[in-house]
């Protein structure tokens, strides 16, 4: 690589733009004229071009089967988004129909003399017992916090 000081009077960035054909006609002519008289820039350009043209440019490619799979994947992701606009109407219609059926058949569905489950009050009492035992719940919470702290400890 050419020392930057050797080409300080030139503009190395112009050489890169020259290589990529990014200069306007006047700029291009200017560089070409300069190159005729500047050995350092000629060497610099040559080095630059040898690297850039030697870089592998192969494009990554997918087979048509892989592209098909990709398209299917995208469509799978995209289709539910659009169907959101149509589904609510269908959902509401189904819900309305179900509600109507239940209302019409409600007297037949309900037993005439439905006895209350005998164990229900016992269950409720047991639940209430647990809920009332706040001390136990607090202890459980403390234990959970302790476990969490133990898990986090190695992470600092």
């Amino acid at each position: 690589m050419i020392n930057q000081e050797q080409i300080c009077s030139c503009r190395p960035q112009q050489l890169l733009l020259y290589h990529y054909d990014e200069l306007d006609t006047a700029g291009r002519r200017q560089v070409e004229q300069h190159l005729q008289s500047c050995t350092a820039c000629r060497a610099e350009l040559s080095e630059l071009q040898s690297l850039l043209t030697a870089l592998p440019t192969a494009a990554p490619k997918l087979s048509s089967a892989e592209l098909d799979r990709f398209s299917a994947r995208v469509m799978e992701q995209v289709q539910p988004r659009r169907s959101r606009f149509t589904r609510p109407a269908l959902g509401w219609a189904l819900a309305g129909g179900a509600a109507l059926l239940i209302t019409l058949n409600l007297p037949q569905l309900l037993p005439t003399s439905a006895p209350l489950p005998a164990k229900l009050p016992v269950v409720m009492t047991a639940d209430q017992d647990v809920l009332l035992n706040l001390e136990l719940l607090q202890t459980l919470e403390l234990l959970e916090d302790f476990e969490l702290l133990q898990q986090l400890e190695p992470l600092g």
């Binding site: 690589m1 080095e47 630059l48 040898s50 690297l51 030697a54 870089l55 592998p56």
Partner: peptide, 13 residues
């Protein structure tokens, strides 16, 4: 890139 590939310059295949 030039710095990183200095040793390969001109010899890339």
């Amino acid at each position: 890139l030039r710095k990183e590939l200095k040793d390969l310059q001109g010899g890339l295949t």
